[in-house]
Write a protein that binds this DNA or RNA. Structure first.
Lengths: 139, 139
DNA sequence: GCTAATTTTAGAACTCCTCTAAAGTATTGA
DNA sequence: TCAATACTTTAGAGGAGTTCTAAAATTAGC
């Protein structure tokens, strides 16, 4: 429980979310969580899995990504219509989005962005604050 | 140039964007810009136009929304996969998104949110900063 | 008006994503 | 350990939202 740490966590977290640790879920978790901070689309993860000889259907990739998101292992970031990323960094942080290339990247944590939060309208709570800094090429 | 002000502006702005002021574009501009701050989806605007007896195709609504966005008359806000709004307020401001109902709303301007901006990575410029405060029902 | 350039349109097509129902796999309890 | 049960995976169909296409209509310039 030292080197395989993040992976051991996954088993725990799947169980406590009521998710069976199936072959597919464990393999996808491995791809996602044992390679540092990542931002992947469902299609990307699907083709990555197949290249790694993990036969898994696209539907399962979508199911799994959403289940992991609900379980708090991932966070979904929507950057453009029809372009949705899943981020393995679930901590409080924000994103750079490169509009030309479509790349998404974490903003280093020390470069604070959010100052004062507005009051939530009555009857509501703030679930999350998403900040996306959209970048273009310097002209 | 007092009451019809925003509309007169539109003609100007269309022309300077190289867009002909066609019947459809003017009618959509009227719907969008003469009713205060609005957040509409393409489908919403399309059915609104047809109810107002403005025969316009969905393709034209999409074209027009994008052309207006490029011309700086609108701003696009993507809140969820397959849910994209066009905002008639092009000033510097941010949004509340009600996750239950799918509603999008401006955050009142005096409730400041963004503090320090991060430095743009080299070779890039910041085009825009989108802040979406996601709301849930208070439990 | 006449001509050329732009715009609109209906419908097909496309992308991303979800659903369906059947087959497969994991878990439970005897 | 093995059946019974519950959950999961899958391929392919289906759906939502958006873009494309090529032809018809409109607009602008002369």
């Amino acid at each position: 429980m030292t080197a395989a740490r993040p992976f051991a966590d996954v088993l725990q977290r799947l169980r406590s979310a009521g998710l069976r640790p199936t072959r597919q879920r464990l393999a996808l978790a491995k791809l996602l969580l044992e390679n540092g901070d990542r931002h992947v689309t469902a299609e990307q993860l699907h083709s990555e899995a197949r290249q790694a000889s993990i036969p898994v259907s696209l539907a399962t990739v979508y199911n799994t990504l959403h289940q992991f998101t609900d379980a708090g292992l991932l966070r979904e970031v929507v950057v453009a219509p029809g372009r949705s990323y899943f981020d393995t960094n679930t901590g409080d942080h924000h994103h750079f989005f490169y509009e030309e290339s479509g790349r998404l990247e974490d903003i280093p944590g020390d470069q604070v962005v959010v100052g004062a939060l507005p009051a939530a309208p009555s009857g509501t709570t703030i679930r999350r604050v998403d900040v996306i800094v959209r970048l273009g090429e310097r002209e």
